[in-house]
């Protein structure tokens, strides 16, 4: 298991949220939207211009900017990159 910021995941990669850090307001919004410890997140795609990214979590699609996704740390299966 490797821990890294959600912003570093590629499209199609899956991770499990381990912690959410950063600005309190952003963090509160994130947890209310279901980005909580233990939640499974799949990166669906990035926008054509490279940012923001689209995620699938808790059965719905959520989009976050890179600088927001940097505050979400996820555990990813598999090899060290």
């Amino acid at each position: 298991m490797v821990e890294k910021p959600l912003s570093q995941l590629n499209s199609g990669e899956k991770g499990r949220v381990v912690k959410v850090v950063g600005d309190p307001l952003l963090r509160r919004r994130l947890v209310a939207m279901g980005v909580v410890r233990g939640a499974e997140v799949i990166v669906v795609r990035r926008a054509p211009l490279g940012d923001p990214m689209e995620l699938l979590l808790k059965g719905y699609y959520l989009s976050l900017r890179r600088n927001e996704a940097e505050n979400v740390f996820v555990e990813v299966d598999g090899k060290q990159t």
Partner: peptide, 8 residues
């Protein structure tokens, strides 16, 4: 403001 945009 943060994006946190739902794509319904």
């Amino acid at each position: 403001a943060p994006l946190l945009l739902e794509l319904p």
